[in-house]
Design a protein around this nucleic acid. Structure first.
Lengths: 239, 239
DNA sequence: TTCAATTTTCATCACTTGATGAAAAATAGC
DNA sequence: GCTATTTTTCATCAAGTGATGAAAATTGAA
């Protein structure tokens, strides 16, 4: 019914615009925004987009329901805000990690495992050191990654560039490899990585206590060499 | 409010019970049940449990909303029915496949890749030959596998036994390997496998047309050797 | 203090949700 | 055709959904 966008746009006018009179948003507004995002993040991660109501988010954050719409607009916009908040940090960390690896090695000493480690390690480190919010976030991404309806476009929108960077680096390292094979191997890698990062608890019960989802150190010790060996095997077989 | 279970139990009385008079459910009731399950399967696979309403399922199946509750009870019971229907077929096929592999080889000629192939191949074949319903089903399983809230227990309830069979077979083949490592490798394997089977379309756009989610032959040519090499590398490193 | 701008609360709307009970239609043994 | 049973439809409920407009409270510049 609404024509264009009657949307509320509180957006950080921060330091007061020229001639402005009103209240130049102090810290309180931002803190609340973050509180809402945190609450939404945890709930979305556990129950998915449709499994959460704006009222639940409001209750979890301890704010009025209307405030969510005031700050973020529609429910889907809130979700996007949750998704975007950490995606940028993540992409920067990964890009920096891969650039650092390439810069620190000359082509002769670079290895497939090294590149893969540079691609994955930032996520493991952030998940371990970044606080509980990051764990929820990875669970959220894993869920989106497996959502056919709109997951694909969402993932592409936020994460494609750094993936291309990985593939191109691997192509430089193994020029004889076909792109087909590299992309398929990436698909296998990301499936393993996301499931491990999302800490579903499945491996805990399956292994009857031998392994724990939360043990990212155990992931670190195995995932890099697992994926690297897989890549090499696929490339070798294709020749 | 309701005490115990006022639930409708139409359950196949099939061939008419002794002294029965009424109508001994012909074929129509069963067909309709399957139609509803098919509709629910497709919708759940695309949008998840909470992203689908019983009314949508009814509309898709071309039946009245009340009929769904008549046949399946609550929405969650419908979901479980969808999940269970193919899980049994799947488990039988995988168990048979692995047994056949073990029976056809003496220990000396068995390989890790062979065991893994016996574990995965049935799913690929069924997805290719079993009709569109199976593709939806795998997407559904992939989604459940990445759902922290209740996905873990659901997966365990339906799929743990055959996974233990895989791990035990691998343990026989590589007695020096630790269970820890085998379970982690399985975690990596299942992440890759489920993402590939669910055909999210993500690899299509990512690879800019080089690869296609629906190309399960491409998966077959790469996934077995990828995982096998990964397993061997992890086992070797642990020593 | 005044006052305009912002933030927060409150009440509520129009609509959808899962679910149910009662009536109607269909079915098959007698 | 009669009748007991099952299947299907219809109308509807109580609770909850996302969202909004208006009022109240808060804030800081003038």
């Amino acid at each position: 019914m609404t024509a264009a966008k009657p949307a509320p746009k509180p957006q950080a006018k921060s330091v007061a615009r020229a001639g402005g009179r009103g209240r130049p948003s102090k810290a309180k507004g931002l803190d609340l925004k973050e509180t809402i995002l945190d609450a939404a993040e945890g709930l979305f991660a556990r129950h998915g987009f449709h499994g959460v109501t704006t009222r639940q988010v409001a209750a979890e954050a301890g704010v009025d329901t209307a405030l969510i719409h005031y700050y973020f607009g529609a429910k889907r916009e809130l979700f996007d805000a949750v998704f975007l908040r950490r995606a940028e940090i993540l992409n920067q960390a990964r890009e920096a990690s891969m650039n650092a690896y390439v810069a620190a090695h000359d082509p002769a000493t670079m290895t497939v495992e090294g590149v893969i480690e540079a691609f994955i390690e930032p996520l493991l480190r952030i998940s371990q050191d970044g606080g509980a919010g990051w764990k929820s976030y990875f669970a959220l991404v894993a869920q989106v990654n497996n959502t056919p309806a709109w997951g694909g476009e969402t993932m592409a929108r936020f994460f494609d560039p750094v993936v291309h960077q990985l593939v191109e680096t691997l192509k430089t390292l193994r020029p004889q490899a076909e792109y087909r094979d590299l992309y398929w191997c990436y698909q296998f890698l990301t499936g393993s990585m996301m499931l491990s990062l999302s800490e579903t608890g499945r491996i805990d019960s399956l292994s009857e206590g031998e392994c724990h989802s939360s043990d990212l150190e155990a992931v670190r010790q195995r995932l890099f060499s697992y994926c690297a060996a897989g890549f090499e095997a696929v490339i070798a077989k294709a020749k």
